[in-house]
């Protein structure tokens, strides 16, 4: 591995200043599971690595009980999310996505921020945060700014972050009542996979428990960046959700995707998986909503 100097800032501001000093000879490092591989392979060769791990507060994970807003610090690891009861119970789409990223070892190191900023088309972590209408808070030389997670990605390996900017945290607005969400990573194996295709669905339904008031269908590996299938979402919104309608939505989502052939999978099959899994995930969402409704009913 090419030698580098490791800088250890204590605050985000200090990190940004360090970057300002060393400019393009520096790289930020979060969990390191990606950066270290790239340095080892010679795909990048920074003279300075700015280690964000020691900055206090970047790994906050909490829900504001008054506003219902969820805050996920950029240095929160996948394992922290996977093992949080809050995430497991209230944000199943996040749990589904993060619990099968790489191995447990990688999830113990890798962070949600690193997963986003890495900006691979297959980023499992991005899909749920887009579906949940998450917002990224960025800090950089010019101060702070907010960007919806869905607008974070420009193309593979490229985000809207300007040089020196750091992802500080992601906030998720309060979820509507009667929300169900689910994600599936489709791959050849049960673990250690990059997805052939990643499909996240979030549905909010009316009090009748069938009419869709909001739909989010988010796809990974279906184009150069993680993306929403908006035509499919539009199809669902305002209508009673049935398996047939979900299949239609899946077909639309498959049509508007930009899947490609690669060593990991063929485009036609990826489209089929979108078609099938949008339906399956949609049904899973409804199951979650119904289950919760029953529990609430019992409590009342």
């Amino acid at each position: 591995m090419k030698p580098f100097t490791l800088l250890t800032p204590a605050t985000v501001e200090e990190a940004v200043a360090m970057f300002g000093q060393h400019k393009e000879t520096a790289r930020y490092m979060a969990g390191g599971t990606d950066v270290i591989v790239k340095v080892k392979e010679g795909w990048m060769g920074p003279d300075y690595l700015i280690n964000l791990k020691q900055i206090p507060g970047l790994d906050e994970l909490h829900k504001n009980e008054n506003t219902g807003e969820l805050t996920i610090g950029s240095l929160v690891t996948h394992a922290m999310l996977e093992q949080s009861l809050l995430i497991r119970n209230e944000y199943p789409i996040i749990y589904d996505a993060v619990s099968n990223i790489g191995s447990l070892q990688v999830r113990n190191m890798g962070t949600i921020g690193g997963n986003l900023i890495n900006a691979v088309p297959s980023a499992d972590g991005a899909i749920p945060l887009i579906a949940l209408d998450g917002t990224a808070l960025l800090a950089g030389p010019a101060g702070e700014r907010s960007v919806p997670v869905k607008d974070l990605f420009v193309k593979p390996y490229e985000t809207v972050l300007t040089p020196g900017e750091i992802l500080r945290k992601i906030t998720i607005p309060a979820q509507a009542k009667r929300t169900g969400s689910a994600y599936i990573k489709f791959g050849r194996r049960a673990a250690m996979e990059l997805p052939l295709i990643g499909i996240g669905v979030l549905l909010v339904v009316d009090e009748d428990l069938v009419t869709c008031t909001r739909a989010r269908i988010c796809l990974g590996v279906a184009g150069p960046t993680p993306r929403r299938a908006q035509k499919a979402e539009d199809l669902l919104e305002g209508k009673p959700v049935t398996a047939t309608l979900l299949t239609e939505a899946g077909t639309l989502a498959a049509e508007e995707s930009q899947v490609r052939d690669s060593v990991r999978g063929q485009a036609w099959h990826r489209k089929e998986m979108i078609r099938v899994q949008v339906r399956r995930m949609g049904i899973k969402c409804l199951d979650i909503i119904n289950q919760k409704a029953q529990q609430t009913g019992r409590q009342v």
């Binding site: 050849r188 194996r189 049960a190 673990a191 250690m192 990059l194 060593v263 990991r264």
Partner: peptide, 21 residues
């Protein structure tokens, strides 16, 4: 192998069964 070149020379894309499989 495409045109003589190996496209998946790693454990990520060469799909050995894992303990979960």
């Amino acid at each position: 192998i495409k045109d003589g070149q190996i496209k998946n020379p790693n454990f990520r894309d060469y799909k050995l069964f894992t303990a979960k499989d």
